[in-house]
Amino acid sequence: MSVESIVTPADKILITGSNGFIGTRALENLLARGFFNLRCFVRPSSKLEKLQKILAQFPAAKNVEIVAGDLLSREDCRRAAKDVAVIVHLAAGFDKSFAGAFMNSALATRNLLDAFLELGKPRRFVNVSSFAVYSNFKMERHALLDENCPLETEPQARNDAYGFGKLKQEQLVRDYGAQRGLKWVILRPGMVYGPGKSDLSGRIGINTFGFFIHLGGRNEMPMTFVDNCADAIVLAALKPGVDGEIFNVVDDERWTSKEFLAARKETKNFFSVWLPYPLMKFGCGLWENFSKKRHGQLPPVFNRRRCAAEWGGNTFSNEKLHKLLGWSPKIKTVDAMKLFLAQYK
């Protein structure tokens, strides 16, 4: 598993969000590559069973540090970043309010960056972002969405607090790069799936009205299996010569929404209704207009921008991942789906 690396196993690597869905897989990936000088940042209220289970698999991991704290505290960030060479930053705000999402994504990142530059031995900051930062509002349906596509300029109109937080987080990282010489890599994973995450992505459909409405139709899903995604993140932390690069993370094989849903239903069938995109687009337009006219009496949860981003459909590419990081998905989609679906059995 050895790759050319900007750090040696003696250098300290910090993983934030290390107890999360992707974070635990990233931790395992680093351990498997022989990196044991790790610091896992967790929140004090987190239940650490998953993380402990992974550490238990690696006898040499007994010196892995677990630091409990909150990235909203500058003091905790200092403890986390001290002497660290690389940060793999996965913690993020999933709060439904804009302020809440901004706090745990952008503000937390600002605190971490300051501490990293002050007390770390900074070589690279790996910022895990998301497809939520893109806007395909002005793109043709099914056009290629790659790293050069426009970013969302109106997250408020899209009613996407999470996307707003991630956009601001990315902006901060780029600003710290330009103004304070921070070396960074940004990864934007698509639809990450795997054991430990049982909800279907909103790109496939929604449950808002008490039954499942399938909205993805024949759209290609920007899917990436959690271990493959974690592998890309770890490579981005190690690989020389990729500072300042942005990578979309999707697997090689990508199913349509319909195929993904059918596979999910094979484990346990449930009722769903398919709504064709033109109808959904019409409905979202009506909802948005009503919401505006009535000053938010109905919150703008359905709107044109969201509709395009989630259900308009795009095609995707991972060419840059392959080329610059030398990444290729270790787990093939058939096997990945088996692992994913096993959690429902």
């Binding site: 909150d70 909203l72 709060d95």
Partner: peptide, 9 residues
Amino acid sequence: TYVSPILGS
């Protein structure tokens, strides 16, 4: 999301 940070610190 509300209670975890309270209990955490």
